[in-house]
Design a protein around this nucleic acid. Sequence first.
DNA 1: TTCAAAAAAGTGTTCGAGCACACAGATAAA
DNA 2: TTTATCTGTGTGCTCGAACACTTTTTTGAA
Lengths: 354, 354
Amino acid sequence: MKKRIVRIKDIAEKAQTSKGTVDRVLHNRGRVADDVRERILSIIKELNYEPNFIAQSLKSQRTYNLAVLIPDPDADSYWEAPKIGLEKAEKELRQYGVYISLFIFNSHEEQSFIAKAREVSKEHPDGLLIAPVFYKEALPFFEEWASLNIPYVLFNTQIEHVNPLCYIGQDSYRSGSLAAKILSFGLQSPGTVLVAHVNEDISNSAHLITKEAGFRDYFESDKHDSKFKIISKEINFPDGETLDDQLDAILTEEPQLKAIYVTNSKAFEVASYLEKKALKHIKLVGYDLLTPNLNYLEKEIINFLINQNPLGQGYWGIHQLANFLVFKKDIQPIKFLPLDIITKENLDYYLDPQ
Amino acid sequence: MKKRIVRIKDIAEKAQTSKGTVDRVLHNRGRVADDVRERILSIIKELNYEPNFIAQSLKSQRTYNLAVLIPDPDADSYWEAPKIGLEKAEKELRQYGVYISLFIFNSHEEQSFIAKAREVSKEHPDGLLIAPVFYKEALPFFEEWASLNIPYVLFNTQIEHVNPLCYIGQDSYRSGSLAAKILSFGLQSPGTVLVAHVNEDISNSAHLITKEAGFRDYFESDKHDSKFKIISKEINFPDGETLDDQLDAILTEEPQLKAIYVTNSKAFEVASYLEKKALKHIKLVGYDLLTPNLNYLEKEIINFLINQNPLGQGYWGIHQLANFLVFKKDIQPIKFLPLDIITKENLDYYLDPQ
DNA sequence: TTCAAAAAAGTGTTCGAGCACACAGATAAA
DNA sequence: TTTATCTGTGTGCTCGAACACTTTTTTGAA
């Protein structure tokens, strides 16, 4: 039951040498006679030596400055959750010398992003966690950070053809399929299903396209034999106005509308419309546990929400950087977070996880 | 950003005394002159001293032997997952001196449980994680362990009127409501719904009763105006036989059967029947990600599974004991794990969590 | 054979907290 | 006054790994 913990000293004794030499073998520092190196290496394997992480971190005392580049949570409350998550991770990791600096940009101004990204480069952090909402503007910086040897973790938005330490977020395609599964479970009679992209610049948001593809493919697979007509719309409206007119138009065109899938966290905008018009029979699925969404989930106007776990994204993003920098663990290049299905009945457990 | 870490030595210097004295104040060990104590205490507060946990655990070297009392995973594969979870926790906590001893009993023999529970008492572990499937037999032991000052954590089955350090598991009532919510979302036309307790001694399983209550209350709440008839049955059959006859009988009696809710992990037994008889229209919801369940989830004969997260129960059980014993944290008496809704599309993320 | 340079191996200090022990000064008992 | 006892305080070693520094051994050129 109690495995004796193996120390460097134990290895040294068994190899009839000193801890200094073992240390040199372990860290490839300095020269060691080949036969001794071999002997030590085989003993390390035999005894299954694992460095005492506690002693290691007590000694080293080094600190890790991590930068975080995210949109302003005050402007879009979606970003509050990642911030809470990464602050939680920082608290847990502080004793290992991990510190976080926030670089907050305005999610509506590319220039603000660029300015903050420049600041990050200037800071030379040991690692970076970034939500690359401005795809094109971010590209040159990825090269810059790579050449500066700053490992970066992407979250929220997956980007191809760059080489992050790791991506953290959801599998968008699966996410779309899951939404389709839920809605099709609740739909018996034939009708129309709407995929709504609300207030989102589709050209810069590949992941929404991917969600739609997952959604459509599910309904178009053999088993549904075109019982449902899938349409998709971009619905954009300025601050202070509503999407009532646009949804009115859609409903006139498609009176058989049975369900709506909102591809981002703006389901509450649609829910507000459905409530106003008392359209109880239209099923609604969306994303994210924002307060306005939760209100409509409680009223069962939104039937299900899929949790993208933004808190977890921030939390795991920092932890992945720490796993790499502090704990020297190997990092899987993609960490997909669970697609949690949330409804009124199980909501509580996802609001303040762990 | 970087707060300088405060050491005992810093406090000692500021109080113009030695670290030994500060140490005595911190641990109420030995005598210290009142004025010096006051001075040190106020400086500790002022500098916001927090002991360096890493140095602490390096020094102390003390080990914690935790006992785990669970049914045999080889006999009921449900118990494999908790075992994996607690082994994972042990691995993470080994560097803090945490060791686990397993006490495995036969889940069909009370005597085997009693024998193993006695062994636990003899071992005098520093803490205990227990799945109290034999309610009546366990009661006297809880008193014994309390008097031996062994903190114990319950998981899987919640028991009233005993005083564990904490309970880890699901809110059974909510769990039943959630199952009802899912099924009612998928049921449009009126019909009968069956609550099936498969191969389970109801008299010793309060949590299954609670699940049924949550399920019934959901359907009986105002909004459903008795569209559905809820019946419940205990279905028991010996090893090697099937429940075909009993389900045949139920279907003859209730030809309008639209959905089945299996209250434990045995949904696959019902699914096997539905597949054989090609009863595709009957919706089925059950618990737990056992391999046979997953097969039927894949085929969509089981529509949804609710994950009781047995792996997480083992994992968090050990972590709660460590939080209490090693990290001296306060423990909430109940830790409800999320009610995860699992379907074919999001299954992957729950199979090997974290 | 000698000796300096290079190679290899060994020693000792450090990180922060815990704890055993040593030691000083005060007080009391003989 | 001497000796014992009690308070209060300070010192120094320990945990395991990292790393700077020292010492020993080997090598090869004169």
